[in-house]
Design a protein around this nucleic acid. Structure first.
Lengths: 344, 344
DNA sequence: CTGTTAGCGCTTTCAT
DNA sequence: ATGAAAGCGCTAACAG
């Protein structure tokens, strides 16, 4: 039972058209080399005769060879893929972040897989566990999981948190306090005394914002109330206008620009003038913030840089070793949605 | 030291805590079974004694076993993953589409990997070729590649086109002509005679729109000119205001809502009133279309349904066999950015 | 520098 | 219904 070749190159000729993706065996056969030589030549040249490498490369190109990442991942345990887990892929807040992360990843030869948790902790857990088998690490955005749980999961494959502080693991997030301080000062200087925070859920990032805002308000002798929107969406923001008006506040911090947009839209529909009736400060500075009327005063978040830095950490094992919690500055962008409180 | 434990019960005993993900071998060992039996029990029960299946399931759960998708993919050639390739992940136009596709995929137990081509045909080609090794099929959105080339690539793994017609392969896209006809009629009825189309590049979808618009205009005795924006972005739309004004048209079709937004913003900045100076019709109805002032009249694209149907085709080999080019209706949403032309 | 030999974790004939 | 053995495509010692 001597049949040369693993499966016999096609018929006669050079064995060009095999009806499947060529493998390193096909290249090896063609050159009368051992597959392992081909493997080395292709992945770590330098450990192979230069001339041989050239011949192998040539044939590989000619046959249209492409390494099978799955097959490579099995023995090495490295897939060349990173996962991004986030609550909602349609939230514009994450676009810049994802794209920046994706860029860095691709520039380093990695692929990105994205999965949406729909904002459920249970989903998030399952996604992470499933993904861990096929990725080299995970970027978790705005996690719903407790920091300790993430840490435990990170024993399997590295995890870095993005856009939310995760004390127990490496993370990159905005520096909340100074940013919120700018915003609070802005409102204070305009003369506001009674403000509201329209939060969006009870996730870590939300309570962190509230805690800081409450402190800052107290320091300035301002009152602050929390009003909870059902979700971090335009609609949920619009739905909460009634409660904002009822509270009698003259300014509101919105959980993010989407919520702020909702508020603006509802106010406009109701004939309530912003900012003369009340001021609105958003969060993130998504692309549509300056499109709104009035355009949105908002805390710009360095989303792109967050994504980039987070991916850097994931890629570089050294940086990764340090459980560093990088924080990046927020910047207050003053536009039209804030003004002095109504005279009354 | 008997702590029941949820995951891999610690301590000694049954040899639970191996320092790695458990494999089917570990389960088999524990039960004195053959790995192949475990494999069958887990993937295709029914071919295994029900009681045995239960025992295996129990132990698997107890050990925290999760199948390794990579290892499974190697012998089967099926990875349980679909790829989505698109020009720009930050373009809101694609959010709904991606999310819907992602939903369908996950509901069927598949994972999605997303890769950005940055709008370059070369990148797109490379990404597709690379991805094909590790996915079961590809969803290509707004491709820059010629339809024939895509067809050739589809020999390796199924490809379906989304949001752009691809005559040579299955695709799901909006039904351009009736949609544009609604929009053109709207403008015609308002009294417009001279319109412009602000296109964004020379991709298939752009020229398709132009061709139809040109026809429709001619049929109605209207004049139409094409003005090309540098990219399908807000900025590029803003940059083109001068040329729109110079052309003397009273209404413009924008390539998409982003471009329309740019036009609106630039007009506002320049003190040119819309819609009294000229009307604007967008395309897609992205979430910010109704946030703008004036809110945008636009052709709503059934993005979610496109994503869903496209993924359905990818998942179902039967539907896939038919090289069906599904088209879905567009819907004109009339808002504030269109009005009768200026009296002059 | 290159060939040999295992083996990654799982599926899949082929036996039994 | 279960076991035995081979193999997916690639890498990784370990020889030579």
């Amino acid at each position: 039972m001597k049949d040369t070749a693993t499966d016999g190159s096609a018929a006669d000729g050079t064995g060009s058209a095999l009806g499947r993706r060529p493998t390193i065996y096909d290249i090896a056969d063609r050159l009368n080399l051992n597959p392992s030589t081909v493997s080395r030549a292709l992945s770590k040249p330098g450990r192979v005769n230069a001339a041989t490498v050239d011949r192998i490369r040539a044939v590989a190109a000619e046959m249209g060879y492409r390494v099978n990442p799955l097959a490579r991942a099995l023995p090495t345990g490295m897939s060349g893929t990173f996962g991004i887990v986030l609550p909602d892929i349609t939230n514009p807040v994450h676009f810049e972040l994802i794209r920046a992360a994706e860029h860095v990843a691709r520039a380093n030869g990695f692929t990105i897989v994205i999965s949406e948790s729909a904002g459920s902790a249970q989903n998030e857990r399952e996604i992470i566990e499933k993904l861990q088998a096929s990725v080299d690490g995970l970027l978790v955005i705005a996690s719903r999981l407790a920091s300790e749980e993430l840490r435990a999961l990170a024993d399997v494959k590295p995890i870095v948190g993005a856009n939310h502080a995760a004390p127990e693991l490496p993370s990159v997030s905005p520096d909340l306090r100074p940013g919120l301080e700018q915003a609070m000062n802005h409102l204070h200087q305009l003369g506001h005394k009674r403000v509201a925070y329209v939060g969006a859920s009870s996730v870590q990032i939300n309570t962190a914002r509230w805690d800081i805002l409450a402190e800052l308000a107290a320091e300035r002798g301002m009152s602050i109330v929390e009003i909870t929107a059902a979700a971090p969406t335009v609609q949920a923001g619009a739905d909460v206008l009634g409660r904002v008006r009822a509270s009698g506040v003259t300014a509101v911090f919105a959980y993010n620009d989407l919520v702020a947009h909702g508020l603006l839209r509802a106010a406009r529909a109701a004939g309530v003038p912003v900012p003369s009736a009340f001021s609105v400060v958003g969060f993130d500075d998504i692309f549509s913030a300056e499109l709104a009327v009035p355009s949105l005063t908002t805390l710009r978040s360095p989303l792109g840089e967050i994504g980039q830095r987070a991916m850097d950490i994931l890629i570089d094992p050294d940086a990764n070793r340090v459980a560093s919690n990088t924080v990046l500055p927020l910047q207050l962008v003053v536009r039209e949605s804030t003004a002095p409180p109504p005279a009354g």
